[in-house]
């Protein structure tokens, strides 16, 4: 079962000594190095960092979209470096949701179809009902058949949020979810994201440069020069 309300001791996400290097011309560039992280079920974690700090790279590694150069990483208790690309994809199917900065809605699909997309990869015969239900929960019950271009930015991101939760995943990654929205709209989307997260008891990993947003997570980590450090409340307020 994807949903577990009971807090378990084993972390859902566990990284140790994680590093990522890229070749840039003749030099090797360390984007991340020696990074440790544990995320527990139903927890919400914010990863803060300035532009270019490697936030997106880290998110890609944690979600198994990319492979680390060094270190250990396990998701749902499975070691990611031990899996090939397909193995990692299968591990994600139905258990991981995503919210992206640029929404990543497919332009030729209606709102409902966009939401149904991740469901297509998991068994079940109530997909349509679930898709409608989730769109209603994000307040778009009347706009099921609208194409993304017929929706405002905030509405598009709400569709994306519904899509992230529709499979009832154990873990949701959010990458700068308000990056493309104005402050007011961004706040509404964030409220929604946290409400849903709380209701569903999902684990949330949020990457952002926005301290206000980070503050709403239970734990805040700061990514700087390729390393993670824990920020306490005061530092976030600052």
């Amino acid at each position: 079962m994807p949903n577990s309300h009971a807090r378990e001791i084993t972390p859902i996400l566990h990284a140790q000594g994680l590093g990522k290097q890229v070749d840039s011309g003749e030099r090797r560039l360390d984007i991340l190095s020696g990074l440790d992280l544990q995320v527990f079920p139903a927890e919400s974690v914010a990863i803060l960092g300035s532009s270019g700090a490697g936030k997106s790279t880290l998110l890609g590694l944690l979600a198994g979209l990319d492979t680390p150069t060094t270190g250990e990483l396990s998701l749902f208790g499975e070691s990611l470096p031990g899996l090939d690309e397909d193995g990692r994809a299968q591990l994600r199917a139905g258990r991981v949701g995503f919210v992206f900065q640029n929404f990543q809605l497919l332009p030729t699909l209606t709102a409902l179809e966009n939401v149904l997309l991740p469901l297509e990869l998991v068994p079940g015969n109530d997909h349509l009902a679930r898709g409608r239900d989730w769109l209603t929960r994000v307040g778009l019950g009347e706009r099921l058949d609208h194409l993304p271009k017929q929706l405002s930015g905030g509405e598009q991101q709400r569709v994306a949020v519904a899509r992230a939760f529709v499979t009832e995943p154990e873990l949701v990654f959010a990458d700068e979810p308000t990056g493309n929205l104005d402050r007011g709209t961004g706040k509404k989307v964030i409220d929604l994201l946290f409400d849903l997260n709380r209701e569903a008891g999902t684990t949330l990993v949020l990457v952002t440069h926005d301290h206000n947003l980070a503050r709403r997570c239970q734990r805040c980590l700061h990514l700087d020069a390729g390393r993670l450090s824990v920020l306490d409340r005061d530092e976030v307020e600052a």
């Binding site: 994809a89 994600r92 199917a93 995503f98 990543q104 497919l106 997309l117 990869l121």
Partner: peptide
Amino acid sequence: DRHLDTAALLRCFGATQRQ
């Protein structure tokens, strides 16, 4: 070109290459 995004998203949601 148009379906690269769909493919990437589906990969992200857990689709295998075979799928």
